[in-house]
Amino acid sequence: MKFKAFLTENGVNLLEKRFLPALDKMGKICHLYLNRDHAIFLHNLLNGDGIQSIAQFRKEALFDDYRISSQNEDRIAFTVDISLLHRALRSSVSICTEFGNGPTANRLQIRLVKKLPPNSTQPLPFLTFETKGYKSAVIQDVPISKPLSRAQVLELQTALDAAQDLPQTLVQVPDLNQLQNFVDRMRHVGDLLNVTISKYGDLHIQISTTLITLGAEFQKLLVIGEQADAPSEDRNLTAQTRSARAILRGDAQSVQVSVKHFGKSLQCHLAKPDCAFYGIAAQVVVAQFLAKSIARLLLVSIFLCFGMG
């Protein structure tokens, strides 16, 4: 199997300054899944425990001269340490900026290689960054796992297809930083968070213990998908009562998630999305983060597993 491409200036900016810092907050290790058209970063897609995330990019959004081949329909997948990947990319960009000049300036190549490490008898796979200046080249190797087998790639693709089904109702959260501040305060109260989303455009979050109840509500948010008008008789009721009545009517869904995991999902504000949507489907909270790049939409999906600590 072979993979080689050049990162574009836009691709470097997207990964180095936006998505890799956000993905690193999701978890240290993730799958990088490459096919003929996309580069996809996947967290916990084959593991039901904890937060799952998908960051999918069309190849043109990141790369120039993109070449991939394998006996598995030109699909390659492996695990990589996000922090090491980010560090190598950041270092390569610094080298390009400091030493790059001449006709090959700022050409950052990324490729899949096998090398024999010191004190080893077996070659190991690496994702290699090669920075070429006018008279020099700097190579940085990021260790990766053995590429997944055909059966493992098929399992990953099946999980990816299943994970991208959208909830029937999504509400737009206008201020992720404000929501992050609420969740940060809730971490000191308890471990589990109740999240309710209604077709009226309401997002209600609440944490309760025997001693304290703390909650926040965002009303009249933009709704995508199934929506409804809030009953006028509910107008003067408390947020908790309105949420309970909406659930009984079938106009809202509620789920209990880990405060820690919910807080991790909000770290996607580091990717600087243009908008963020939350919904509930199959006992998970789904967050969709959309960001525009080269007239395309980049999509990050965050899945919070039900009741996980």
Rank of each mutant, 00 (worst) to 15 (best):
P125D: 06
L160P: 04
A244G: 11
A163F: 09
L192V: 01
R36Y: 08
C305D: 10
G100P: 00
F218P: 00
L297D: 07
D49K: 15
F41Y: 11
T238K: 14
S149K: 14
D161A: 09
K132E: 12
T209C: 06
R242V: 04
I82N: 01
P117D: 03
I207P: 00
Q256A: 09
I212V: 14
S198N: 07
L42Q: 03
G190E: 05
L89C: 11
V255C: 08
S293Q: 12
Q122F: 15
A281P: 03
M1D: 05
S198W: 02
K135M: 12
E233W: 07
A151V: 11
H261F: 14
L108R: 02
K115E: 13
D191L: 06
D229I: 14
S258T: 07
S198I: 03
Q109V: 08
F277W: 11
V142M: 06
V223A: 04
D251W: 06
N181T: 10
L176C: 10
N236S: 13
N181M: 11
S149M: 10
K292N: 12
S293P: 03
F182G: 00
M1F: 09
L237N: 11
N236Q: 14
F63P: 02
L32P: 00
A163I: 08
Q122S: 15
H31Q: 07
F78Y: 14
F126D: 05
R235V: 08
V171Q: 04
F41I: 08
S208Y: 02
E130M: 13
F277T: 00
E155L: 13
M186L: 05
T97C: 09
V142R: 10
L192G: 01
L304Y: 01
A88V: 10
